[in-house]
């Protein structure tokens, strides 16, 4: 009898511990989500210029600007699950602008941004941007030098001039371009990726394709 009750109390002790820890983690995640969703709206400081990477319609009344990081898993999910389809199917309704905001905790994000820019020098920015997001899992954990070699391989697959790609990658002008995009994000108050601006005002990140589509349709009215 005594043994039984002590077994019961032992089970309760451990269940209690798991419940307490679970509540703490759940509370922290909820607080984090609330902080992310309830952030004050930011205003885009740097207007879209011809120096930006723009796709979709150039005449549409809606402009979506994304500050993004090629190594950020959330940006990758948005790209693969939402943006790619959105641009393909609704691309006539908005123009999409990509700006680099490589986060320092992602060690290959800057190199990836340079690879996309170097591909851009040969007219294939968006192709490389897509490729890098699609292959993110393959290179995110590589040492930076190995990642650079992997990117050179992608450049070859995309039919780019390998020698030019390599020399462009180390071009100080491209470094400066990525740095100034990142600085533009900092100045605007961007503190996480991806951050989307619709017609100059930041939005709470939509949770699905349909939500994102609705945001664009609303902005078009």
């Amino acid at each position: 009898m005594n043994n039984q009750s002590s077994t019961v109390s032992r089970i309760f002790t451990w269940i209690g511990l798991i419940v307490v820890l679970g509540l703490i983690v759940w509370g922290l995640i909820a607080a984090n989500n609330k902080a992310v969703q309830g952030r004050p709206k930011l205003t885009l400081l740097d207007p879209v210029t011809s120096a930006d990477w723009i796709t979709g319609s150039t005449t549409a009344p809606v402009t979506v600007v994304e500050y993004s990081d090629l190594q950020c898993p959330a940006c990758q999910s948005y790209h693969n699950l939402v943006l790619k389809k959105l641009i393909a199917e609704e691309g006539s309704k908005f123009r999409f602008v990509y700006r680099h905001f490589p986060l320092p905790q992602h060690m290959n994000a800057y190199t990836a941004a340079l690879a996309a820019e170097a591909a851009g020098k040969q007219g294939k920015f968006w192709e490389m941007h897509d490729k890098l997001f699609e292959t993110q899992k393959d290179w995110e954990k590589l040492a930076t030098s190995t990642a650079a070699e992997t990117f050179a391989g992608y450049a070859k697959t995309l039919g780019l001039d390998a020698a030019k790609f390599k020399s462009d990658e180390s071009d100080p002008a491209l470094f400066a371009k990525v740095a100034s995009s990142s600085e533009s994000g900092n100045k605007t108050g961007v503190d996480s990726t991806p951050t989307f601006f619709v017609n100059g005002t930041s939005i709470d990140n939509p949770n699905s394709y349909d939500e994102f589509k609705a945001v664009i349709e609303k902005a078009a009215q």
């Binding site: 307490v20 820890l21 703490i24 983690v25 922290l28 986060l103 905790q105 990726t193």
Partner: peptide
């Protein structure tokens, strides 16, 4: 427990790409 909550908070922020 306090230390755990503190460190877990930072880990969650890290993985959701928020500073």
């Amino acid at each position: 427990l306090i230390g755990f909550a503190d460190a877990a908070y930072l880990s969650i922020e890290h993985f959701s790409n928020v500073i």
